[in-house]
């Protein structure tokens, strides 16, 4: 019998990064459970969870529930109520996603380089699915100066590369203005 030790998604990458007015850091991975209510079971599921997020919504309670796609939410954290299986498909996604927090005055300006998303329209907190070039993205707006960006674990390196290039450009512009 062997024993396995874990390796994080950003194992070899130099994080956190700072450029001008923004800072990029890895988010300590929480347990992530995808919850997909079966047709007609939304109300029953909502009763057990307290609420189920509509598109774009983030609910903060004992668990954080983040809308993460069509008919699906991610529960961030431990302590999912028992017996949800009757109402929804549950799926462990804890190791599937890699998250970065982008914090700072220029966070929106940096994201405007990367995502074709109208960030003005987003409430805080809220979530959106989008593409960063070809990178799939789950974006969570925490505030005007903090955005969490989640992508597939296998693309963590590419996400950092894209973010760093955009941060560098924005910081350089700030330096000349």
């Amino acid at each position: 019998m062997i024993e396995l030790s874990p390796t994080g998604a950003f194992g070899v990458l130099r994080l956190p990064l700072e450029q001008g007015e923004t800072r990029l850091s890895a988010i300590a991975p929480p347990r992530i459970t995808a919850i997909a209510p079966y047709p007609g079971q939304m109300n029953a599921l909502s009763r057990r969870l307290g609420a189920f997020p509509a598109p774009g919504e983030v609910h903060d309670g004992q668990l954080r529930l983040v809308w993460s796609g069509r008919e699906m939410a991610f529960a961030f954290g431990e302590g999912l109520p028992e017996g949800l299986e009757d109402f929804a498909a549950l799926c462990d996604q804890s190791d599937a996603w890699a998250g970065l927090a982008l914090v700072g005055q220029d966070a929106q300006a940096v994201l405007a380089r990367l995502v074709a998303l109208d960030l003005r329209a987003l409430a805080a907190p809220s979530s959106a699915r989008a593409l960063m070039g070809h990178l799939p993205l789950l974006l969570i707006k925490e505030s005007d100066t903090r955005f969490d960006l989640w992508t597939f674990r296998s693309m963590a390196d590419s996400l950092v590369h894209e973010m760093e290039a955009a941060m560098r450009g924005v910081a350089a512009r700030r330096a000349i203005s």
């Binding site: 997909a36 047709p39 929804a88 799926c91 462990d92 804890s94 599937a96």
Partner: peptide, 13 residues
């Protein structure tokens, strides 16, 4: 769309 099923990619997990 009314069948009782859901699916999700778990490739990355």
């Amino acid at each position: 769309s009314d069948w009782q099923l859901r699916f999700a990619s778990v490739t990355e997990h």
